[in-house]
């Protein structure tokens, strides 16, 4: 891919070393017109700071709040967003695509 996720992953490593709780979100599947390719990362810490992106900015909020729970209980989750899903309209993935985002704790 043309844009690199290396800085995001380096930041994730540094955040973990600083003792922060950190979650990693990854786009695992896309259908239709998705703004970010499969494999894209968003890294989130336990204070809600984040780097990177898994969409054009429309579902990041929902992923960040789910990440807080993943950091708390350590259980990975698969989240899906799409226009067919009513909640997706609420978070606004209006580009017509659908995406699956895997959220896991680092540590």
């Amino acid at each position: 891919m043309l844009t690199t996720d290396s800085d995001i992953l380096r930041a994730a490593e540094a955040w973990v070393r600083e003792g922060r709780g950190v979650a990693l979100a990854t786009v695992t599947e896309t259908w239709g017109s998705a703004p970010r390719p499969v494999g894209s990362h968003l890294v989130i810490d336990d204070e809600g700071n984040f780097l990177g992106s898994v969409s054009g900015g429309c579902v990041e909020g929902a992923v960040v709040s789910e990440a807080a729970e993943v950091i708390a209980d350590g259980k990975p989750r698969m989240m899906e967003f799409g226009v067919a899903d009513e909640t997706a309209w609420q978070v606004g993935l209006s580009c017509g695509g659908r995406i699956a985002v895997y959220v896991e704790r680092i540590g």
Binding site: L9, R10, V16, R17, E104, I106
Partner: peptide, 11 residues
């Protein structure tokens, strides 16, 4: 993801 795997990936 284990921190060791992330470190190996970044390396």
């Amino acid at each position: 993801m284990k921190p060791e795997l992330l470190a190996a990936l970044n390396a």
